[in-house]
Nucleic acid binder design. Structure first.
Lengths: 210, 210
DNA sequence: ATAAATCTGCCATATTATTGACATGAGAGA
DNA sequence: TCTCTCATGTCAATAATATGGCAGATTTAT
């Protein structure tokens, strides 16, 4: 039923995770069906937009009925690629790196942290939830010997670009960047930035904006 | 020179922190002036867009010269409200809450963490970098006795909405939400979401999208 | 069984954002 | 001083995104 995925606009893509999140919650709450109108109230979007968003991937709904929650959730799960299993390594075992490694919430969606890497000799050899912290020098060989899909960069910003280059050269396709810099990468790789400072600045802006 | 700030589009607002970040880096690197063209190369935007963005706030540049880096940085700093000092409390002293408390990088922009709150008796009474962890029951009285501008919600998602309501009722204006839910708040309050799962899903989507 | 109400998928329209073009003014060099 | 070059601010054109409306399919009520 679903059309071949060709082009999906940036705007639509950014909303898909949100749909997935809400649908997962609804399914857990035992809700079986939902109309675009109800969903729009719940999510603060227009019903029209929701219908159009889903239509990028082919129609999942039924006239007069609406959408089946768990079916729709499954479709979006597939669209997001969450039916796959991803292996993650974390570069930088500082505050943030450790917090990510400790967090188990992503495992239900198939994301598993396999190792951390750091330069600090006091951290190397330790482990978090059984996940080992290795010397950063071992990163390349680890990647070549283990399947690594995603690397989370949690280094100071000065080291982030260099780390990314090594990672991509070693064959890692996805970079989840937490360092406060915009990383430049070749086309085959994909960077998703989480700029905490940007979001804090935005908050500040909106708080002072009136 | 700068026009009165009236309406700034979402899109422009989201780019401002990025400008600030790059300008700060440039200033630190000793760069004195920059043209929109050069900046566009550096940031991956078009020169036209950059000029138009800055013009939302009044012209900061000079024909034939370009923009003075440190002057422009200062203007954007003011626009973002980063000339103020903000007091932050963190709700939930788990992995992420602790990581935020340990991170000192926001202090240079005037953001100071004053306290953490948790329900876990093993954490209550401890401190992080000298920042105390209190019982969540003391949150309201703490807010009334201390000036608190921003609360970072780092609780499990089930508790996030409730926490937000208490916070806003107590007079906190800004919510920096790290829980994986969309928090509903009255108009006077401002919520900035950091949905790590959304960003990871987006990465997954783009990695499987070809 | 039939009528009324519901709700999707799609298309046409409206709104918003980005890009391109250019007149004008400042700086640099001779 | 004069001319050439550079680069802004602004406006118009284009592109992207969101909204509104409706035909037709499906469910629900009678």
């Amino acid at each position: 039923m679903a059309k071949e995925k060709n082009y999906v606009s940036e705007a639509v893509m950014r909303r898909m995770p949100k749909y997935y999140r809400h649908l997962t919650d609804m399914e857990k709450a035992g809700i079986e069906r939902i109309s675009s109108k109800e969903l729009s109230k719940r999510m603060g979007l227009t019903a029209s937009q929701i219908r159009q968003d889903f239509n990028c991937f082919g129609g999942f709904g039924q006239q007069g009925y609406g959408y089946n929650v768990s079916e729709l959730r499954q479709e979006i799960q597939k669209i997001l690629g969450l039916h796959n299993e991803y292996h993650i390594i974390i570069i930088g075992a500082g505050n943030l790196g450790q917090a990510l490694a400790n967090y188990t919430g992503f495992e239900k969606d198939g994301f598993f942290v396999k190792a951390l890497f750091d330069i600090n000799p006091r951290l190397i050899g330790m482990s978090i939830r059984g996940i080992p912290i290795y010397d950063i020098d071992e990163m390349e060989s680890f990647i070549s010997e283990n399947e690594v899909h995603i690397a989370a960069i949690c280094t100071p910003k000065e080291k982030a670009q260099e780390a990314a280059e090594i990672l991509i050269q070693s064959g890692v396709k996805g970079i989840w960047n937490f360092a406060a810099v915009d990383i430049a990468v070749p086309n085959q790789a994909i960077v998703e930035n989480v700029h905490l400072s940007d979001s804090l600045y935005t908050l500040s802006f909106r708080m002072s904006d009136d």
